[in-house]
Design a protein around this nucleic acid. Sequence first.
DNA 1: CCTACCGATCGGTAGG
DNA 2: CCTACCGATCGGTAGG
Lengths: 202, 202
Amino acid sequence: MRSRSVTKHKSPDERADQILAAARACFLERGYFATKMDDIARAAKLSKGGVYFHFPSKREIFRALVQAEFDRATAFMDQVVDEEGDLLAQLLRLGDHFVEAFAADATMPRFMLIAAEMSLRDEPIRQMLLELQEAYIERLTAILERAIADGHLRQIDARATAIALKSLVDGVQAAYAVGYEPNRDRLVEATFALIGNGLAPR
Amino acid sequence: MRSRSVTKHKSPDERADQILAAARACFLERGYFATKMDDIARAAKLSKGGVYFHFPSKREIFRALVQAEFDRATAFMDQVVDEEGDLLAQLLRLGDHFVEAFAADATMPRFMLIAAEMSLRDEPIRQMLLELQEAYIERLTAILERAIADGHLRQIDARATAIALKSLVDGVQAAYAVGYEPNRDRLVEATFALIGNGLAPR
DNA sequence: CCTACCGATCGGTAGG
DNA sequence: CCTACCGATCGGTAGG
């Protein structure tokens, strides 16, 4: 009686997700180049050949991970902007998003740093990051413009201000990635004071 | 008659600088891992063995480049802070510093991005970056505190505000590194409007 | 400082 | 015949 193995096959999507999760952990720990396909395979409990069955190359695995980060971020943003509400509520929600994202998934800043560095040599990744940046800035600009129209903000250059605000968040994110960890509450409070009232004496 | 080459030897320091300049160009173009020691040697017009005569490893070459960036930055900051002057003048000078640094040396943001990514796996580099960050923030905090004492600023959390401002600059730098190039004048103007007066309606 | 070369290891692919 | 893999190994290249 021949033993016939019951299917230990997972669906392609499940396998792909399993590989992506394993690869993400490896890239975070060692960076892109120091991560070997064997590392990814071992972490995914497959052979290297098995990984190559699902992905054509190491680079495509990394791109898929950047794409996933992109999708998560844009989905959240649309949710924030679609909901009506006043400026303060939306900015607080956006701020919460970033603070929570850093806190809940401490790996995100690190991954974004690795992705940004990869973008210097990988045009598809660069395009994704530029698109994501533009998406954030457009949403933020829209929020600011609506607030100006409603008289909740003074007349400012909405788009340039949006870029400045997004840059602030990116800078904080980069600091966290390298391990510079400012007190979160103080930073959030100071940032909202800065945004709200500026530095000028009352 | 044996041909005896007139000394084509440069001083060790000159050679080291020549190698560092060549290496910097290579790292900027290809990143750390894709840069081979042969690439550096060729760019420096030496053999690979020649490069290894002056530096013990590829990693030490990269660390020396980060150190050089560190020295440049701290020297400039001390210059800005030592000069007396009112807040606006100092912030403008600091702002000019960054804007000029991005403009005059367009490679700097890119190099800093590569260095930040390297810091994830290289503790000495990470320490240098953290020290540099702390140095910037301390200087900026000192400027803000002096301005508060002089009544030119309202009472704010100087250090947390300094971190926010430095993050803003870092975020802009990161954007430039990836090739997101906002209009400089608009961004500077919006940033100063934000810092000066905040967003609240007058 | 170069030439010649090593020990080791890599991403990707073959046959079954 | 196909699918989802694995063990083994290739050609080429790396830092030193």
